[in-house]
Design a protein around this nucleic acid. Structure first.
Length: 296
DNA sequence: GACAATGTTACAGT
DNA sequence: CACTGTAACATTGT
């Protein structure tokens, strides 16, 4: 699911296959998914792919950009020659070409019934935007305007790059909502969603309902480290493909195979053997070990 | 049929 | 205005 590790994995794929190429045509099958003038990003080179939290930005040489949010069920899938103009770092879960195993179950033939936008590129390749629930959006805007778009405007710091422990500590101490909704608040910290909030709190042995102001400094540091460890591990394994998520080549990640707490209701805690419980918090499914993650 | 599903976002209430 | 909590968006699967 598209949280920071999943969106970053997609970004690495798009960077590898799109940069340097040119969009020749854009087929918008579901107009409500797209805003702005599509013609602005035709016939100009893709320069870079950026990610902020769970948002993606494709920058073009003419200073226009495509901003994309795939929300819960969006997929961005590249089909075409796998010639790369720049290397992809290893250990990112993006399997090398040749060995690629596209998830037929999650992708199917393209375009499919949930393909809403099709980009055709100059090297005989295609980028498909699929989205079952149609919650996502694609916005074509001048590059300078991206940072003032509603989603990007108020985005908090990046947990894997510019978030410091001091900053995290002051954010935590200032908030009155329980700790789990805080972790998922994109305005406070960018990129953490329901799965990794659950996993990080379990790893840090902190109850999802704990009041942030009640956390000790060591607990805050432990949580800070847990967030980093969980997100890095998820990146290494290509993200979680519990539902629709696949990378830019249509391949699944494997982090869902090592979920410690998310979705594990009724199973035994691997640390203490207690039965994992599920509650609803902030409208989201919340999983925790009642023994390891105590409220008091 | 009821319910839940990775995420924002608009709205109501304090 | 700032903050917090809840429902809504649309579709699929159990």
């Amino acid at each position: 699911m598209p949280e920071l590790p999943e969106v970053e994995t997609i970004r690495l794929g798009l960077q590898k296959y799109l940069v340097g190429h040119v969009i020749e045509s854009i087929d918008i099958r579901l107009p409500k998914m797209v805003s702005g003038e599509a013609k602005r990003v035709k016939d100009t080179k893709v320069q870079a792919i950026r990610r902020y939290g769970k948002g993606l930005v494709i920058d073009f040489a003419n200073n226009y950009s495509i901003a994309i949010h795939i929300k819960m069920t969006g997929q961005l899938i590249y089909q075409g020659p796998r010639s790369s103009l720049r290397p992809v770092p290893s250990g990112t879960g993006l399997r090398s070409s040749g060995q690629a195993k596209v998830s037929r179950e999650k992708v199917g033939n393209l375009p499919g019934p949930h393909t809403h936008v099709i980009f055709r590129l100059n090297n005989n390749s295609f980028l498909y935007y699929n989205d079952i629930r149609q919650f996502g959006w694609i916005k074509i805007v001048p590059t300078n305007d991206v940072s003032s778009l509603p989603f990007f405007k108020d985005l908090g710091p990046e947990p894997l790059s510019n978030l410091t422990i001091d900053q995290f500590s002051s954010i935590v101490k200032a908030v009155k909502s329980p700790i789990k909704p805080l972790l998922m608040d994109q305005k406070k910290i960018a990129g953490i969603g329901n799965i990794y909030a659950n996993e990080a709190l379990y790893l840090a042995k902190i109850h999802p309902k704990r009041q942030p102001s009640s956390l000790s400094d060591p607990e805050i540091k432990t949580l800070f480290d847990a967030i980093e460890n969980v997100l890095k591990k998820a990146l290494e394994t290509g993200g979680s493909s519990e539902w629709q998520y696949v990378n830019a080549l249509g391949q699944e990640g494997s982090y869902q195979k090592i979920f410690q707490i998310y979705g594990q209701v009724g199973k035994k805690c691997k640390i203490c053997g207690a039965t994992i419980q599920k509650i609803t918090l902030g409208g989201r499914g919340t999983f925790f070990c009642p023994a390891c993650q105590r409220l008091a």
